[in-house]
Amino acid sequence: MTNLDLTIIVPTYNLGQYLPATLKSIQEQTIDIELWLIDDASTDQTAQTVTNFVRGVPHYHATFFNHHRGIGAARNFGINHATGKFIAFVDGDDLIAPTFAETLVRGFSLTPGVVATAVGYDWWHRSRGGSDRFQLLSQAEMFDQVSHHGTEIGGYIWNKAFSHAALDAGNIRYKEQLRIAEDYDFTAEYVAHTRGNYAYNPTILYKKINRPNSTMHNFSWDDRRQEDQIFDHIYQLKRLI
């Protein structure tokens, strides 16, 4: 058990040369965090990199699946074992600024009833950013942001932190069978079922790395049809708000 406010969850799978830079950026955070690394049966040196990184650090934890179960299963394992009041997710080939964790946590103290926070991100040359100043959004405003492609905040999970208590209260977990748009599904489910304020700081603190052999570059037509079904479901969720 720890008394750290934020748990960062990082699924890992055959990340090769990308993972060390990600772990270094986590290590350089300006506040202490709990870390869960969940290796999804990597067949390269990733598992050894994970083992070496957590060794000797009490609030860094690792687990190793004995067969490949998918990113949803890895993230769910992290949620179920996290002890932080807030939960954030980082992809194992991405980079976070030193103040990423601190800023996400700071957003929860802006006003009573903040249930999730978000920061700006850089991906595919999208780096508009803004000043280090939070803005509050209603549940409906946040849902509009997370339920559509191309919005400023986005439906991704990796530039956000979620209330652990709210995740458990709504039984919000990843649908492990999804191969595409699982971020949008998770985030939209969370917002649709979680009343309260949402805090957004546009400062760019998360950098998404475009890895050529990543899962997102290998989707089939069946996956794309599944994405359409997911967004149909997301649009139906709006009635809950």
Rank of each mutant, 00 (worst) to 15 (best):
M1Q: 13
T2H: 10
N3F: 09
L4R: 01
I9Q: 01
I9C: 03
P11C: 05
P11R: 01
T12C: 09
Y13E: 01
N14M: 03
N14H: 02
G16N: 08
Y18L: 09
L23W: 00
K24L: 05
Q27D: 13
Q29S: 14
I31R: 09
I33E: 08
E34N: 02
L35C: 07
L37A: 02
I38M: 03
D40I: 02
S42P: 06
S42H: 00
D44S: 02
D44V: 01
A47Y: 00
A47H: 00
Q48H: 07
T49D: 02
V50A: 06
V54N: 01
G56A: 06
V57Q: 10
P58S: 06
P58M: 02
H59K: 06
A62N: 00
H67I: 00
H67N: 04
R69V: 05
G70P: 00
G72A: 06
A74K: 00
N76D: 12
F77E: 09
I79K: 03
N80Y: 11
H81Y: 10
A82Q: 07
T83F: 12
K85M: 11
A88N: 04
G92V: 00
A97C: 07
F100R: 06
A101L: 09
E102W: 07
L104Y: 02
R106Q: 15
F108L: 11
S109W: 10
L110N: 08
L110T: 08
L110D: 10
T111I: 14
P112L: 10
V114Q: 10
A116P: 14
A116Y: 01
V119L: 12
Y121G: 07
D122L: 11
W123G: 12
W124M: 15
R126W: 12
R128S: 14
G130Q: 05
G130N: 05
D132N: 13
Q135S: 15
Q135D: 13
Q135Y: 09
Q135A: 12
L136S: 09
L136A: 06
L137Y: 14
M142I: 08
M142P: 05
V146E: 11
S147W: 10
G150Q: 03
T151Y: 05
G154Y: 03
W158V: 14
F162P: 05
A165F: 00
A166W: 04
D168P: 01
I172E: 07
Q177Y: 10
R179V: 08
R179T: 07
I180V: 15
Y184H: 15
Y184P: 03
D185M: 11
F186H: 05
A188R: 08
E189G: 07
Y190C: 11
A192F: 04
T194E: 09
R195I: 10
N197M: 13
Y198H: 12
Y198K: 15
Y198Q: 14
A199E: 09
Y200I: 10
T203G: 07
T203N: 07
I204G: 02
L205V: 10
Y206K: 10
R211H: 09
R211E: 07
P212T: 05
N213H: 09
N213K: 09
S214K: 06
S214A: 15
T215S: 13
W221C: 08
D223C: 09
D223E: 04
Q226S: 14
E227C: 12
E227R: 12
D228P: 01
Q229A: 15
H233N: 14
Y235P: 03
K238L: 08
I241E: 02
